[in-house]
Design a protein around this nucleic acid. Structure first.
Length: 464
RNA sequence: GGCGCGGUACCCAAGUGGCUUAAGGGAUCGGUUUGCAAAACCGCCAUGCGCCGGUUCGAAUCCGGCCCGCGCCUCCA
């Protein structure tokens, strides 16, 4: 499995703050853990970007020949979910499953491959409790009146990961009502909660935020796995604390590569549920096709901030359709008969080996696709052209995950075809007024007619 | 205040020393085509890369200073 093609991938590692050659711990296998959502409201573009980016990383690794185990947790119990539950009267579990299934529906539309495992906090309470017990035993945690805290002073190098200095005092939210915490930097592993809690050696309570990832990633992927991903906003305190807990227990940082995606901003400021400065994913999917949205999200570097601009998003729809067109024309020309394939060092995908440079990859795709389309239209394409088109489609769909849906797929076309041929007859009789009525009627239904030298063609123009 | 990131055409954006007299996408405008449209195609579109200095045969790319924007430091993808 380990061959030359896997050796060229470089990825930026937050742990070392530089691009490093990617090398998996076990030959041919990659364990990847990405921080998932807390399902208490609808997902926005920021979530979409994160999971599209990591889906693309996963697809690229699979393209390189790795077998990837992708784990994404679900924080299905937390303060916000409980707050929502009190507001609506539904149980926290109902809230979490409702928003999680809506999240999954949107991910499916975006052609995000499902994770292999979605561990839930509420189904892993026993593992979390064992983890905490082990930390107490090691002297890295202590209990105060039913809650348990991590003892930051027990660990050297706390703060190194996120670049926070030793002397800096970080006062967590948990500390507010609990002056007894021994160090302001200490954070909760277990929170006393008689109402929404589980039984534990320290009484009724529930897990702190960070411990779930340490406990569940260890359980599924082991003490040391390849990639840990998440949004840049999780760097501190979440990932810093996760590293602290795991390191205190096992003696090592739990993952080799720490990968963070940049934030999505709206009007220059970060998109966030809590501030209401957001653009919902389902709104975006009303504006453009899922494939166009994916192009939008992958058209800049994943580590950079991405500003949501309505015009820029809309613009990707047209670019997306040209690629759809390429696939359609190829099918029409009868040249889509074999599965496309390309090598890791093909100019089309080669840029991905440089820290997943999707923007340059898209540039290469469009550069190559432009001249091809016209050749295929004019039927002047050669076998090499058709092979290139297949490679473009392969990279676009399989590696970048941009599904090039052919509009006719899965639709009832008979009515449309009939209207079009009726229009053709009218046109031949030069009864243009009546012909245009049909054209307008179809356009209202989102069907656009294109009169080409080889006859009329149509396609669906509205997203969805 | 501490730590980090960024400023490239009308907009988005790649490029981090010569392969770029700066990719790609979108918008506008002009043209070809069309019964008219749409679509498609062709053309136009930064002698310039926040500003000022410096290093170099050569800089958007390296160094120094300055200006501006953003993120994290509190829940957050």
């Amino acid at each position: 499995m380990r061959d030359s093609k896997t050796g060229n991938f470089k990825i930026y590692n937050t742990l070392t703050r530089k691009k490093e050659a990617f090398e998996s711990i076990r030959t041919g296998l990659v364990g990847m853990y990405v921080c998932g959502v807390t399902p208490y409201s609808e997902a926005h573009l920021g979530h979409a970007r994160c999971y599209v980016v990591f889906d693309t990383l996963r697809r690229y690794l699979e393209f390189l020949g790795y077998e990837v185990t992708y784990v994404q947790n679900i924080t299905d119990i937390d303060d916000k979910i409980i707050a929502k539950s009190m507001e609506t009267g539904d149980t926290p579990s109902d809230i979490a499953s409702r928003y999680f299934s809506s999240f999954m529906g949107e991910m499916e539309k975006l052609n995000v491959k499902p994770a292999d495992i979605y561990p839930r906090v509420t189904e892993n309470i026993d593992k979390i409790i064992s983890f905490i017990k082990a930390l107490i035993k090691k002297g890295s945690a202590y209990e105060i009146s039913g809650s348990v805290y991590f003892r930051v002073s027990s660990l050297d190098g706390y703060g190194d990961f996120s670049g926070r200095g030793e002397g800096e005092k970080v006062i967590g939210e948990e500390s507010k009502g609990l002056r007894a915490k021994k160090d302001p930097r200490d954070f909760a592993l277990w929170k006393q909660d008689p109402e929404y809690g589980w039984d534990s050696p320290w009484g009724q309570g529930r897990p702190g935020w960070h411990i779930e990832c340490s406990a569940m990633s260890k359980d599924i992927l082991g003490d040391f796995f390849d990639i840990h991903g998440g949004g840049l906003d999780l760097l501190f305190p979440h990932h810093e604390n996760e590293i602290a807990q795991s390191t205190a227990l096992t003696g090592r940082v739990p993952a080799r590569y720490w990968v963070h995606n940049g934030m999505v901003t709206l009007r220059g400021d970060k998109m966030a549920k809590s501030t209401g400065n957001l653009f919902l994913l389902n709104e975006a999917l009303k504006e453009v096709s899922p494939g166009a949205l994916r192009i939008f999200l992958l058209s800049s570097s994943y580590r950079q901030s991405l500003d949501y601009d309505p015009e820029a998003l809309k613009g990707t729809e047209k670019a997306f359709r040209r690629l759809v067109e390429l696939k359609e024309e190829l099918i029409r020309a009868g040249k889509f008969y074999e599965q496309g394939f390309c090598d890791w060092n093909d100019p089309l995908v080669e840029a991905l080996s440089d820290d997943l440079n999707t923007a340059r990859t898209l540039g290469r795709i469009f550069t190559a696709a432009g001249p091809l389309l016209e050749k295929i239209y004019g039927k002047t394409h050669t076998e090499d052209d058709a092979a290139l088109a297949r490679r473009i489609i392969f990279v676009t769909e399989e590696v970048l995950g941009i599904e090039l849906n052919t509009p006719s797929a899965g639709m009832d076309n008979s009515g449309i075809e009939e209207l079009i041929s009726r229009r053709e007859k009218l046109r031949n009789q030069r009864r243009f007024g009546e012909a245009d009525v049909i054209r307008d009627k179809l356009l209202e239904k989102g069907i656009e007619i294109k009169d080409t030298p080889s006859g009329p063609r149509w396609r669906k123009v509205s997203p969805g």
